[in-house]
Design a protein around this nucleic acid. Structure first.
Length: 311
DNA sequence: GTCCCGCTGC
DNA sequence: GCAGCAGGAC
């Protein structure tokens, strides 16, 4: 009979082997990106699939390789370059973040959780991910993938809705592999600390194998330890949260229409009031959405009622 | 808890 | 069609 510690070691070893063979070759992985580049990849990946992020990240980093470059870019260009990634407020937060990093930290991303999480657009997940993936620090990273995998493997149930509970955080920290003695770290594969590989592999497993609706348990390296699999996957895919708001007809759709029209315009041109009004039938909703885009700093409303991207 | 985008997979 | 996605701000 294995004790918990031996079982955990087995899980970590199986995961690391699976990672070596199956990790996607994303351009910000394997030491090819700066800490700033890694932060950009994390922000772009918030609520957005990695496969969609790759071309945007590559073009973005070619155009603005560091925080200082992004900090000085025209807002309109930043919004345009964000393209169809979605949640365009992330683009503005990222530029604000770049400005703070440039002005307050002399273009060098800070290395503590408190400083990182205080940056615009950086919350608990992104701060932890940067500490782990960019700086190799031993920190628990909790995103939707990791929460789902840990809950299934070690609790035998689907992770529940809402934000991460103290219990989940405690579990994530407890499972995190210890650092090797410093002298041996550099000899490990790629010089990557075990906790970093752990975080990356669990996340990747959640994205590729232990997916929300149809997990591929047949090819899962953790199946022999998985309490969820052993229990017959009770409540598989059970909704964690209340049904999401529909997209059709929502403010999100209308905002997307307006911003999309502005992005299509030649640089510096404005969208006339008439063309704005042609974008959506419901005048009241349209007006409200234009106002909210203005509040967010994503557009500017000119005195004659036409719109443009912020200068 | 609610609101934010756009795309992919089923 | 519709859920779900490397969340964060409010």
């Amino acid at each position: 009979m294995m004790n918990d510690s031996e079982a955990d070691d087995g899980v970590a070893l199986a995961l690391a082997a699976w990672w070596e063979a199956n990790a996607r070759d994303l351009p910000w992985r394997f030491g090819r990106a700066t800490p700033w580049g890694i932060l950009v990849s994390e922000v772009m990946s918030q609520q957005t699939q990695m496969s969609r992020v790759v071309p945007y990240w590559t073009a973005w980093m070619a155009k603005w390789p560091d925080a200082r470059a992004l900090a000085g870019a025209p807002k309109a260009e930043v919004i345009t370059a964000w393209g169809r990634l979605g949640y365009p407020r992330r683009a503005l937060r990222l530029q604000e973040c770049a400005q703070v990093v440039t002005n307050r930290y002399d273009d060098e991303l800070p290395r503590t959780y408190d400083e990182l999480v205080a940056l615009p657009g950086v919350g608990d997940y992104t701060a932890s991910a940067v500490l782990s993936f960019a700086y190799g620090r031993r920190v628990a990273v909790l995103d939707t993938n990791i929460r789902r995998v840990l809950s299934r493997v070690f609790c035998g149930q689907e992770s529940l809705g809402g934000s991460a509970s103290p219990l989940e955080r405690e579990m994530a920290w407890r499972l995190l592999p210890e650092d090797l003695p410093s002298r041996r770290v550099s000899r490990a594969k790629g010089g990557v600390a075990p906790s970093v590989t752990w975080n990356q592999s669990i996340m990747e497993l959640g994205a590729l194998v232990c997916t929300a609706k149809s997990p591929l348990c047949g090819q899962c390296p953790l199946a022999e330890w998985c309490a969820f699999f052993r229990a017959g996957c009770p409540g598989l895919g059970q909704r964690r949260t209340r049904p999401r708001q529909r997209f059709q007809g929502t403010d999100r759709q209308v905002r997307g229409l307006v911003l999309g029209a502005l992005r299509e315009l030649p640089a510096g041109e404005t969208l006339s009031r008439e063309r704005v009004e042609g974008l959506w039938e419901d005048r009241a909703q349209l007006t409200s959405c234009v106002a909210s885009l203005d509040d967010d700093g994503l557009i500017e409303i000119l005195p004659n009622g036409s719109l443009r991207l912020p200068q």
